[in-house]
Amino acid sequence: MDRLMEERIARNDAAFRSANENIAEAAAEIHVDGALPFICECANRECNEIVMLTASDYESVRTDSRHFLIVPGHQSAEQNVGEVAERHENYIVYEKRGHAGDVAEQLDERAHLVSVDDEAAA
C-alpha cells in the first residue's frame, strides 16, 4: 500500500478519535458514569457504529497513540496498516504500524499535551 493511502487511513481514524475524546471529556464534565457511547474509529468514513465502553476502558485504549477503538469485524477497513492488539467482548483495539502508525502518533492531541507538560516540568 502506498504512503498516501496509509496516511489517509490514519487521518480518518484520528478524526474519529478526536470525536471520542470530546465525548469522554463531556461525560467527565457532566459527571456521567457507567457505559458511555463511543464511535467506532475504523477507517470507513461511512461507519457510525457505537461502542459502549466505560470511561476507564476508553482511557486504557488511549494510553497508546497508535491504538484505536474498533467494532469487531471493522478491522478490514484498515487494509492491513496494523494489527489487532487486544480483543474484548464488544470491541477490539487495533494498533497502527509503519507510516500509518507514525501519522496516528503525530495526530494524537494528547501526546502533544504531554510534551508541553514535560517541557513545563523541565
Binding site: 470525536a19 470530546n22 465525548i23 457532566i30 456521567v32
Partner: peptide
Amino acid sequence: GVYRELNDQLAKL
C-alpha cells in the same frame, strides 16, 4: 448531555 455531545460529534464528522 453525553448523547447530545455524541450526536454533535457524529454531525461534525
